[in-house]
Each structure stands twice: as structure tokens, then as C-alpha cells.
């Protein structure tokens, strides 16, 4: 029971990170109908920038908690802005000129861009994993039970709390942004009918750019959270995390933001429980198999609308 609870908390933390990345996939797919294959690498870039910003600010675990929290908010802002610059450029350079080209052109271009981002990070920052001492330690004991077999403790660490709280806050913020503001309205209208939206005076290109920027800033948040939680990153983390987050986006129903979050949680829980109860080695196999199963049997996702093809 305690083990289960512990894993549940781990799963929710991991799922939140996947969910944040998945929102970027789902928004872009919803609006221009392409898989932004490079999105996972934007997540990696976000994590890299967070690491660099933490080092540049000279943050160490010895600083006081309040100061650390403030500094992390600053790091978060830096990572969000810079990752947005990356994704904006990617859209501008690799996707916008291809609108109206044949259908697989943007996907192939996106694969190229993903390679470019990965290699850029590898060449500039080196191929070795970058480990760092955990910045935030400590946490709370949720449960403590002593039996003859030993002590059972369920803990939730400060970082896990931060991850979950940040995710919830950002979800609320973005949901409000999509449902309440004129920007969100423009996005939803582009999603429904791009041509009609542009006839009604919506700057489609700008709306798409903003979508990419929003997706990237959430991926950067996920990057920082991932780095804080696991303490080690390299240039390759974007690939697997990207595929899992995409699975989450499809599972939740592509185009649906709450769906992406839900999908992320499901994928995170499956991964954690799979590693906990079956085998750690095959956890990625489970994730990839999950992707195949979801795409084949549930392509409209949990919260999505079935897609009808008109001839």
C-alpha cells in the first residue's frame, strides 16, 4: 500500500511533466495538423537553458528556501523566453514556408529540425550527461507505519510539490487564456477553419506563431521540472520524452488541452507502475507499445472528437 502510494506520487509528478510537453503537441496539431517532431527537443533545450541559468546564477542548495524559490522563478522565466525564441524560429524557418506543400513535407522538415536541435545541443554542450546535486531537498512525510518488517514511509518531496503545483497553476492559466481571451478565440477559430478565420480578419500566421511560443514555454517549464526532479540531463532526453508526450496528446484526444494533461498523467502512471511492478528495462518498450495501441485502437483519444474524412 505504501509502495503503491509512493509510486502514485511519482507517477503523477512524471505525468505532469509529460502533460506539459503534450500540450505543445496538441495545440500545434490542433491548429495546423502536423506533428511538431522537434517539440521534444524544445523540451530538451528548455532543460539545458534551465541548467545553464542555474549555473550562471550560482544557485546552490545552501541558499535559503525563499531565495531559491525566487531564483527558480527567474530561471523559469528565462527558460520560457529562450525556448520560445527557439520554437518561434523553428516554425518560421522550417514550417511556415511549407504550408500548402504536400502533406508529408512539414513532417520531414520537422524531423530534420529535430536532428538539427539535438546536434546543436550536442556540439555546443557536449554529449555527456550533465548531473547536478539536487537543489531542493526535503519533503513531507505523508504516512509512517512501523511493522515488524520495518518502517514504511510515504514521502512527498518539495520538488514533487513544486512540480504538481506549477503544473496545476499553468493549466489554469492556459485554460483561461484559451477560453477567455481574444487570443484564445483566434486560436480556436484557426483550429476550426483557417481560411474562414483569415477572411474574418485574424492574422493566421501570427496566431500560429503564438501557438508555437506557448507550446515552447510550457515545454521549457517541463524541462526545468524534469531537471529539478531527476538532476541529470543530456542532449538526447527530448527524443523519448517527446514520443511519450505525443502518445499522451493522442491518448487524451489530439487538439484538447485537458486531454493532453489527462493523457500525460495516464502515460506517467503507466510508466511508473510498469517500472515498479514489472521491469525497468522495458519501460520504454511499454511506452512505445502504448503509443502504437492508442493510435491504432483509439485514434480519437479519450476526450477528442472522432475525425470524419470528407471525400
Amino acid at each position: 500500500m505504501e509502495y503503491f502510494l509512493e509510486q502514485l506520487i511519482n507517477g503523477i509528478t512524471l505525468g505532469s511533466i509529460y502533460g506539459l510537453i503534450a500540450i505543445g503537441y496538441t495545440m500545434v496539431y490542433g491548429i495546423i495538423g502536423m506533428i511538431n517532431f522537434a517539440h521534444g527537443d524544445i523540451f530538451m533545450i528548455g532543460a539545458m537553458i534551465s541548467l545553464i541559468a542555474i549555473l550562471a546564477l550560482g544557485l546552490t542548495a545552501s541558499a535559503s528556501f525563499a531565495l531559491l524559490l525566487l531564483a527558480l522563478i527567474l530561471v523559469l522565466a528565462i527558460a520560457m523566453i529562450l525556448a520560445s525564441a527557439f520554437n518561434w524560429t523553428v516554425e518560421r524557418v522550417a514550417y511556415r514556408p511549407l504550408r500548402g506543400s504536400f502533406r508529408l513535407a512539414p513532417l520531414i522538415s520537422a524531423i530534420g529540425m529535430s536532428i538539427v536541435l539535438q546536434e546543436f545541443a550536442r556540439i555546443a554542450q557536449g554529449g555527456r550527461p550533465k548531473p547536478m546535486q539536487p537543489l531542493l531537498s526535503g519533503g513531507f512525510e505523508l504516512m509512517h507505519r512501523t511493522t515488524e518488517a520495518g518502517d514504511f514511509i510515504v514521502r512527498i518531496s518539495t520538488i514533487q510539490i513544486i512540480v504538481i503545483v506549477t503544473t496545476l497553476a499553468l493549466m489554469a492559466l492556459f485554460t483561461a487564456l484559451i477560453t477567455r481571451t481574444s487570443l484564445g478565440r483566434a486560436q480556436r477559430s484557426c483550429e476550426q477553419d483557417m481560411k474562414m478565420a483569415s477572411l474574418l480578419g485574424i492574422d493566421v500566421n501570427k496566431t500560429i506563431s503564438i501557438t508555437f511560443v506557448m507550446g515552447a514555454s510550457l515545454a521549457a517549464v517541463a524541462g526545468l521540472m524534469f531537471f529539478l526532479r531527476y538532476g541529470v540531463i543530456d542532449f538526447y532526453i527530448g527524443f523519448v520524452a517527446g514520443v511519450k508526450a505525443f502518445t499522451a496528446a493522442v491518448l487524451g484526444g489530439i487538439g484538447s488541452i485537458p486531454g493532453a494533461m489527462l493523457g500525460g498523467l495516464v502515460i506517467g502512471l503507466i510508466e511508473v507502475f510498469w517500472s515498479a511492478y514489472f521491469s525497468v528495462e522495458y519501460k520504454d518498450v511499454a511506452a512505445f507499445a502504448m503509443l502504437a495501441v492508442v493510435l491504432i485502437f483509439l485514434p480519437q483519444g479519450l476526450l477528442g472528437k472522432p475525425e470524419v474524412e470528407k471525400v
Partner: peptide, 20 residues
């Protein structure tokens, strides 16, 4: 913004700990 942090500041670990 693109080249500044990633190219300009290389996080390396010459003696264990990461430095820029």
C-alpha cells in the same frame, strides 16, 4: 537568444561539479 546560452555558456564538468 538562440546562440547566447547554449553556445556561449558551456556547462562542463572538468573536476566532477558542473561549471560554466
Amino acid at each position: 537568444a538562440i546562440f547566447g546560452p547554449i553556445v556561449g555558456m558551456n556547462a562542463t564538468a572538468p573536476q566532477g561539479g558542473l561549471v560554466l
